[in-house]
Design a protein around this nucleic acid. Structure first.
Lengths: 335, 335
DNA sequence: ATTGCGATTGTAAACCTTTACAACTTTTTG
DNA sequence: CAAAAAGTTGTAAAGGTTTACAATCGCAAT
């Protein structure tokens, strides 16, 4: 591999001049520049990024941590992050934590080893004190989740009000026995959506039947299993609100296998509006959230942090919207 | 940030000794070691990875390039890659190309800038000559796709025979007008699956009706659109074989909207066996391929290449299997 | 006492850039 | 024509490691 010294020697200039030709920061005599460019071409010279990074103490790498790449929700967020990163000249390192805090910490350590410039967390398991401490001295942005009482810059929707919106929709259709399939309890997001569910019922003067709140893990399969359980009750729910679309699709499968019609016998609503949700049958009532934009805005903020530029806003809340499709309808007794 | 010099000074040793304590390669007097460890602890020392990488001319980063992170097929492959990489102490940089060759080349350039040690391509657009040349001097593995006549190490299934298997299944059920929704023609994989489709028909003594071969782009939506077109024909097909599950799910939607029953009026088969494919209604007949293993084996090979270790095999072909579910059945006229 | 050896540690170069500063050349100005 | 300014280039240090090689020390063997 040719180095800058080889180029300098061939072009009969100093290495400083070669560097200047590359960066374009300082003026270089056009003739000299030509010689240098010719030499670089001839030697097929490629600057060594490691040396450059060491000198600059910058890597132009940002890390995005997510609990599960497989979840299509996150892959759209990633797209936003990746596009934003690209535009600013950053590369994206993706870390899959599988919800494992140890893995997450491994990735976080890369910041301290100068192997990455910043970090985006798409799900904070609740080690809030640790996280706050960590974020105090390092560029970090929290995407998708809002952490009560934290000062970490955040981009998300208002999960509580969004969940409330879904449940109110079901209430307005006439449902009274509405179940909730929540995500893992240790995920902040899950608890926020559950809170919205409770609020809607309470505002409607209804008690929450704790039997109707069941925990899943955001996977298709968990939605399927939990729904079978719900259907086995003496008084099964007339509507199910799942904390994400995947679990809702699992629920749909379980309901159909049970010989019931959607939405005639039972309504289903999800959360996230995955692309597939408008293609499944019945198509899914759900909350559309600006996943791409969440990613894009997060990385924008992160890069400002990295550059020590001031943030206009430290907590960004984006709009969501309820998308009503075939899976939710008036309950039977009301028809 | 404390450096190795600070640690050395505090522990009253040379930087070489500190380095030795970290690497554990050379022997160090236990007492000295204790002093050094204490100093590191006290200063909260973290070695600078950039400096280490520059010195070693290694980054421990590998890049995985894919056309589309959003495709759930790839996210499972990524998991395999990521796990394999982690186990070997490598980090994974994910590059989304959007099928754009320019973006792909940008990522590939990172190898020449010493910012990554190796590359896994999950889809080769056909710039075969360029790719062969590029791979000749750099650690590269091709995952998912087999490139005819290339010497680039590859891990994949036999797409031709797998596609043949699907079509033979449909033929065995009695179908004669079988459509194929292929992937983008410039993707090798798409052409392989098309080839399998043709072979199966020919081996059965049937002509290929070129009207029944339509091109999609692997997205749900393209499957939907193409199917509407197929259904508008005077003599629509009695079965549709889509080159991936997403297009198949799009096809199902279009067929239902058209008021037809699956599989009574028309059968559908996909390719990939996404998790969601067993949850949609009707559940999908498809080809199961070992996505995780493809990723895992690819990275294994790549790391051997990076370490200049010999490869036992340069072209690995893994097993696939046909999964028959609800979406395929006997055509009407045969019932 | 001398020699030799193993164990341990230190010195200094190398990895390849970027950039502050100095130096030199050419042009402009009075 | 001298002096100042502008334009161009070079020198050398710095960024933080790893490691080949040399040096030192203690101790056993002769």
């Amino acid at each position: 591999m040719a180095t800058i010294h080889d180029v300098a020697k061939l072009a009969k200039v100093s290495i400083a001049t070669v560097s200047r030709v590359m960066s374009g920061a300082d003026p270089v005599n056009p003739k000299t520049q030509q010689r240098v460019l010719a030499a670089m071409e001839k030697l097929n010279y490629r600057p060594n990024g490691l040396a450059r990074n060491l000198r600059n103490l910058r890597t132009n790498v940002i890390i995005a941590l997510m609990p599960n790449i497989q979840n299509p929700f996150f892959s759209e967020v990633i797209r936003g992050i990746e596009d934003g990163a690209r535009e600013a000249g950053f590369h994206l390192l993706i870390g899959n934590t599988d919800g494992d805090r140890g893995k997450a910490k491994e990735y976080m350590a890369l910041l301290d080893e100068s192997l990455a410039d910043g970090l985006i967390l798409t799900t904070a398991q609740t080690d809030q004190a640790f996280l706050d401490e960590f974020a105090a001295h390092r560029p970090i942005v929290l995407a998708c989740e809002y952490m009560e009482g934290s000062t970490i810059p955040t981009v998300s929707i208002d999960n509580i009000s969004a969940a409330r919106k879904v449940v109110k929709h079901l209430l307005a259709l006439g449902h009274r026995r509405i179940a909730h399939i929540m995500g893992p309890n240790e995920v902040i997001l899950s608890r926020a959506r559950l809170a919205g569910y409770r609020q809607a019922l309470q505002q409607h003067g209804l008690e929450v039947d704790e039997m109707l709140v069941q925990e899943g893990d955001f996977s298709l399969d968990s939605g399927y299993r939990v729904t079978r359980k719900l259907l086995s009750f003496k008084r099964p729910p007339t509507a199910i609100f799942a904390a994400n679309d995947e679990m809702a699709i699992g629920a749909i499968r379980a309901i159909r296998e049970h010989g019931l019609q959607i939405p005639d016998d039972i309504s289903v609503a999800g959360f996230d509006d995955l692309t597939v949700s408008s293609f499944v049958s019945p198509s899914l009532t759900t909350i559309q959230q600006p996943r791409y934009e969440i990613g894009y805005r997060s990385v924008e903020m992160l890069i400002r942090l990295i550059r020590s530029e001031p943030l206009a806003q430290t907590q960004v809340v984006l709009d969501d919207s309820l998308v009503i499709r075939e899976s939710s309808g008036v309950p039977k007794e009301h028809m």
